[in-house]
Design a binder for these strands. Sequence first.
RNA 1: GGGAGUUUAGCUCAGCUGGGAGAGCAACUGUUUUACACACAGUAGGUCGGCGGUUCGAUCCCGUCAACUCCCACCA
Length: 865
Amino acid sequence: MLDKRYNPKDIEKGKYQNWKEKNYFECGDLKKRKFSMVIPPPNVTGKLHLGHSWNTTVQDIIARYKRAKGFDVLWLPGMDHAGIATQAKVEERLRKEGISRYDLGREKFLEKAWEWKKEYAETIHKQWEMMGLSLCYSKERFTLDEGLNKAVRHVFKTLYDKGWIYQGEKIINWDPEFKTALSNIEVIYQDDPGKFYYFKYYIENSDRYLEVATTRPETMFGDVCVVVNPKDERYKDLIGKKVINPANGDLLPIIADDYVDVEFGTGAMKCTPAHDPNDFIIGQKYGFPHPKCMDETAHMNDLAGKYKGQDRFECRENLVKDIEKAGNLIKVEDIIHQVGHSERSHAVVEPYLSKQWFVKMDGLSKNSLNLQNSKDKVEFIPERFNKIFTNWMTDCDDWCISRQLWWGHRIPAYYNKITGEVLVSEEEPKDMENYTQDEDVLDTWFSSALWTFSTLGWPEKTDDIERYFPLDIMVTAYDIIFFWVARMIFQGLEFMGSRPFDKCLIHGLIRDANGKKMSKSLGNGIDPIDVIDKYGVDALRYFLTTSTSPGLDTRYSDEKIAAASNYLNKIWNASRFILLNLDDNDNESNLSIDESKLDAIDKYILTRLQETIKNVTSNMEKYDFANASTHLYNFVYDDFTSWYVELCKVKLNGDNLELKQNTKAVLIKVLKDIILMIYPYTPFIAEEIYLNLPGHKESIMLDSYPEVNEKYLFDKESLEVLDLIHMIKDVRAYKVENNLAPNAQVELNIVPLYKDFDSSLFITYLKRFAFAKEVSIVSTIEGNIKVYPSCQMEIKDNIDKSVLLEKIEKEIERLNSEIARGEKMLSNPGFVQKAPQAKIDLEKAKLEQNKKDLEVYLEKRAKIA
RNA sequence: GGGAGUUUAGCUCAGCUGGGAGAGCAACUGUUUUACACACAGUAGGUCGGCGGUUCGAUCCCGUCAACUCCCACCA
């Protein structure tokens, strides 16, 4: 039997281990239709946050729902080695012990990194368990495991042979802290305060000078020329002459190029090919060299003369001071400008000329765009994210994939020690002694991009690939559409020849109560574990998946979790009440519904139940879990606990044993369906209640999702019970209005409006729930009248005529305005001609009813007056 | 500079293909009614951001303006 209180901690205990041990999470039943998903692999860098909880709960709901719907569900778990992020953490840990990765050397360092991975994998497993995720653990993968490495090598080699992977010397985004190249999307631009320095560049052998402005004076040591616009009248005569670089006295030619904007700054631009992508293009165009003035840690090199060894910002400051002393500083403007920072280290990214590996994007993106224009496209939910995806695909730069790190897939390129020739090969060359392997590793996302099929054993031809690829759905937040979703799509297309998943369900980010992003530095992060401790995991899961709208961000709030918890408590207690009413000999068979004995109230709840199953299911199918849950919530509160369970108490306390038994059967039936529908959201409480129901299976995980049953749809009885409910409400309101106690006794008269009106139903329940001393069936009503579709009701009282008249007057007024509205609508030729027939009929019926009601009230008024 | 999203009750948000706006929390009144005070019964609260258009009819469709948020973009 259920405890008096819903206590999440107690009921969550042991369930997960049990499910896991019984292999309920595993897939492989070939008799069933397959449904497959892979988890977006979390980084092995730390604890999971609420964003993960959200993302994985959505998937768990899908997995559990699909299993209950009879699918063979593969939900593949795994983790990401997260190159830069993890390496940074490991290095940080080492630094605390006073050692650097270079002290250890590559091999030893990697051992440390694997230790780290092991440690954090354990943490992540624990958190998955805590969240109740029904993952197929037997299929678990890691982005750096042997199989995935094989896939990576194969992909690299294939694309290289095709010419779609190449090595090139380009300006890339350099992270001077982690000393590695980054891809464009790993750079975060933010508005930083900066300075715009205006310097005098004297014309050679002249007193005249050119004003040149820059935000990065330290790069002046890498300058090769000054560029002006050929149309710029101010400088026309200077083109071809030379100016003196105020940083080092070098002579720089003045050249002309359209690229320079006459309006911007001084109209004269210094050009540093090795430290700026645009300058690089200009440098190439005019055949300038491209000297670098910094080393890989963004410290100045030989070119910077006396500033050698200084950090770039230190050099900037010193250099400006020196130029000022020399009288060549004109002014300094404070500006706010966009500065690129490394996504991981947050260091200011240095555009830097460097030899790196790239993935050529034009062919891959064209294929993806074609896919999205075909009927085989990946369906984004919500759809607008397709546009985000295709916009990005339409013009994206080549993808820089090499990273100067150790933790990751090492690039399968080998350089001949003598000739320097490059050999790209999936396996080490046989004469390895003649080769050295490329030192670099691949961008983490290179392996993540293959996650949808490499995890199934590709490039081997495995049964899992055959059965589970392509995946049915991918669930992820919108912030990694470019990093991950896009790359999975083009790689899936390239190597598997099809979209990697049919649908891509995009959700938002979780924010704090004020709408701010949760972050460590702000200290506004919420640890899922704390929430679980306080409210239980079911409440957290329910909150995460129901108080959100597709594709939008959501705010965390304690109140919302508390509300979820209250809801679960409600279900708990309703279950408890129902179970308390069972006796020892009740079992599955004597609790099956006898349809011939259903009364109006049973028919009402069963009808509403069918409608609810229909609405919930259709929303589950659309992956709209918020909407689905709302339908269930309303049913649970309004129809089931507020009315049906309350009304049933009459029958349960009565002495009609047959009726009582059938009522219990209906209660159990409705409760069971509710539990089965709430189960994907809140598996723990659902399992606990489920296991207390008669005729339960070994676990709710083995039962199936409720289906609509046409034989439980009843119109007339539903309508009558609805009227009964309205009557009870009206009587209650009447009492409040007249300062009567809630349980004050009243006398009621009822006029049935049709022949087979079930008067005993109304009498019984009005007595109990409206505290009616007496309910009489009459043919006409003298006093305080209320009108319903199936009957009229009078609350007998001795209010004086004037008050009664006033009330009737009010009602007449209301009806008149309703009738006026209806008549206006129906006499509008436009409406009658163009509105759908159903709407016209509805309005006509409403008008008729209102007219009828008005007549009743008018008659009443005449009588009293 | 381009693109997307948001704007509905005091707060957080729903509102499904256009046909008289809803929930949760908060507020107010009442109730220890034998599942639940984590509850029940009831009440109050909204020119659905502004303007214009389409339509018989607009919170919903179109245009425009405003505010906020986010993404993308090489302006030195």
